[in-house]
Design a binder for these strands. Sequence first.
DNA 1: CAGCATCCGCGACGATACTG
DNA 2: CAGTATCGTCGCGGATGCTG
Lengths: 121, 121
Amino acid sequence: MPSVPFVCGLDVVLAVLGGKWKLLVVYHLARGTHRYGELRRAIGGVSDKVLIQQLKELQTDGLIERTDYREIPPRVEYSLSRFGSSLADSMAPLCEWGNKHEAQVGKIVSRRSNGARVNQS
Amino acid sequence: MPSVPFVCGLDVVLAVLGGKWKLLVVYHLARGTHRYGELRRAIGGVSDKVLIQQLKELQTDGLIERTDYREIPPRVEYSLSRFGSSLADSMAPLCEWGNKHEAQVGKIVSRRSNGARVNQS
DNA sequence: CAGCATCCGCGACGATACTG
DNA sequence: CAGTATCGTCGCGGATGCTG
């Protein structure tokens, strides 16, 4: 349990972005503050339980911030922290790589038991 | 339900680097060609089954290349393909982010049920 | 040395129903 | 609207033992 043997920086990133939907959360929040429902609809196909859980973790990790306006009906907004923004910035090159090779990877993924590893909406 | 709804490039990357050890494999191979045993020892704590499985997937995905010298005793070498190298290059900024914030993330991770999410060597 | 086969635990993820 | 609670599934990943 001690020493957290991160081998390279990507380990660190994955430790914090490991959840299935965290990437999408950061992605959408990088484009602006969202209310809970907005975020849920923007992502699509995620259950409340999991989304809330991962939002909490992201918040604990200091990547996102939660603002509860204490109104009725409830109104809660999520946004990236500066920490989260810096991470989102560092993602850019990798994002570009992904976009560039999307077609090739898409073909590969669809071969693996016909798309077992992809997110369903 | 539609076809491979990649939201951003990082989805694509994760589709191909989703396995628990693939990151480490790419990381080590980025530093040079390795024989199977070397790679296994360099990573540490991974079983043959899982390592082989993920190596195969990485190979199928075109990220790494396998060279079997057909000798006895067996000698097999793994290396990054150009495709894999380009991915490794795009990782650099994210790696730097990770290295920079390793301490902070390390503290966070060690709090989550006392290190349940980290790799043990 | 490199790799395969089998069994299995565990935790992430999901569906559903309910609450303030 | 923004969660919470409960239960069930699924498959990744690990341990062990065997082969060429």
